[in-house]
C-alpha cells in the first residue's frame, strides 16, 4: 500500500529479492494481478496519469499476497490509513511490513494484540532510520540487553544543523537551501520540530520496553530556536549541536544537544546514526542513510525476507 518514494522502490526491487508484487495501490487507485503486476508498466502509468490503476484502492487489500508492505504517509493519533491496512492484513493471517511509523508509534499495543491473534507477523525495520538495521540489531542483541539508544534520526534536521555550523548561516537560509535541494519538504515541521525523530524513538521504546509508548510520552524539542551564533560558540569550544533522540531508563527525549565536533554522533549532511549502549557488547554505532526510496526499500525487503512462509 502506497506508491510514493518507498512503495515504488519496493515494487521495483522486489523481483531482484525473489518476490512477486501482486498488488499496488496509491491514494486513488489500485492494480491487482495474482501472477504479478508488470511493475515497470504500472510505474510508467503512475508517472503519466498520477495513479497506478483503475481498480478501487481497497481491492489491493483483498488481493492474494503473503506480506503487505505498508508505505502510506505517517500520521499521528489514529495512524490511519496505515493502521487499517495492518488490521486488514492480520485479520487475513497475512504478514505486514511497515515503512510507515504511525501504527507502531501511536498504536503499538493494538498492533501487537492484533498480531497475537493472527498467524501473520509484523516487522518495521524501515520505520526506524531507513536503511540502518536498527531493529534487527536490537533483536539479535536481545532488547533487554540494550541499555540505551541514542542517535541522529532525522536527515533533514541534521542537514540543516550541519550546514548552519559549516557555513555560518542562519536557520531560515539553510532551510530554504534544503528545500531547493529536495532535502526538506515544503512543510518541514515534522522534521525540524523533532516529531519524526520522536516517532522513531517511541518505536524504539516500544521495542525495548515491550510497548506502552506513544508520541505523548516523548519530550520533544526541535531545532528552530538554534541561531547560527549558538553553533559558532559551540564550534569555538570543539563542539557542535545535533538533534539527538535518546531512549534510556524508560524515557524518550528528542532535542538539540551539544556533542563533540569530531565525536561519533556528529554526523554531517543527511546521514543518520544509531548508537546502542549494550550490556555485554559495549557501544555499537551504525550510521548510514536514514531515508531515500531504494535505501528504505532495502530495509523493507530485508524484513520481507525474514518472514516465515504463510499457510
Amino acid at each position: 500500500m502506497g506508491a510514493g518514494a518507498v512503495g515504488r522502490s519496493v515494487a521495483k526491487l522486489a523481483g531482484e529479492y525473489g518476490h512477486t508484487v501482486t498488488a499496488l495501490a496509491d491514494s486513488s487507485g489500485a492494480v491487482v494481478d495474482a501472477d504479478g503486476i508488470d511493475v515497470a508498466a504500472v510505474l510508467a502509468r503512475k508517472r503519466g496519469s498520477g495513479t497506478v490503476g483503475d481498480a478501487e484502492v481497497a481491492t489491493a487489500l483483498d488481493a492474494p499476497y503473503d506480506a503487505l508492505v505498508e508505505a502510506t504517509p505517517t500520521t499521528l493519533s489514529d495512524a490511519q490509513p496505515g493502521f487499517g491496512h495492518v488490521e486488514a492484513a492480520l485479520e487475513r493471517d497475512r504478514h505486514v511490513v511497515l515503512a510507515n511509523k504511525g501504527p507502531v508509534a501511536e498504536r503499538y499495543d493494538e498492533v501487537r494484540a492484533l498480531a497475537a491473534d493472527s498467524r501473520g507477523e509484523v516487522l518495521f525495520e524501515a520505520a526506524v532510520a531507513g536503511a540502518i538495521p536498527t531493529l534487527s540489531t536490537i533483536d539479535s542483541l536481545g532488547p533487554e540487553r540494550v541499555r540505551a539508544v541514542r542517535g541522529v534520526l532525522n536527515g533533514t534536521a541534521n542537514f540543516v544543523l550541519s550546514r548552519m555550523a559549516a557555513e555560518g548561516l542562519d536557520y531560515e537560509h539553510v532551510l530554504a537551501e534544503a528545500q531547493d535541494l529536495g532535502v526538506a519538504e515544503a512543510d518541514p515541521s515534522f522534521d525540524v520540530e523533532g516529531t519524526d525523530a520522536a516517532l522513531k524513538c517511541v518505536i524504539l521504546a516500544n521495542v525495548l520496553y515491550d510497548g506502552g509508548y506513544t508520541l505523548a510520552d516523548a519530550e520533544v524539542e526541535g531545532i528552530r530556536s538554534i541561531p547560527g551564533s549558538a553553533l559558532e560558540l559551540a564550534a569555538e569550544d570543539g563542539r557542535t549541536v545535533r538533534l539527538i533522540g535518546e531512549v534510556s531508563d524508560g524515557s524518550v527525549r528528542v532535542g538539540p544537544r551539544l556533542v563533540p565536533e569530531n565525536g561519533t554522533l556528529a554526523v554531517t549532511g543527511t546521514t543518520n546514526i544509531v548508537q546502542l549502549e549494550t550490556e555485554h557488547a559495549g557501544q555499537l554505532n551504525i550510521s548510514g542513510a536514514g531515508a531515500g526510496g531504494p535505501e528504505t526499500a532495502s530495509a523493507v525487503l530485508a524484513d520481507v525476507g525474514r518472514l516465515p512462509p504463510v499457510d
Binding site: R150, E246, P256, R257, L258, G263, T264, L265, E277
Partner: peptide, 12 residues
C-alpha cells in the same frame, strides 16, 4: 532555551 550536553557513555 538550553542546549544541554549529551552524556555519551564512554565516547570521545
Amino acid at each position: 532555551h538550553v542546549v544541554e550536553p549529551l552524556a555519551e557513555g564512554g565516547d570521545a
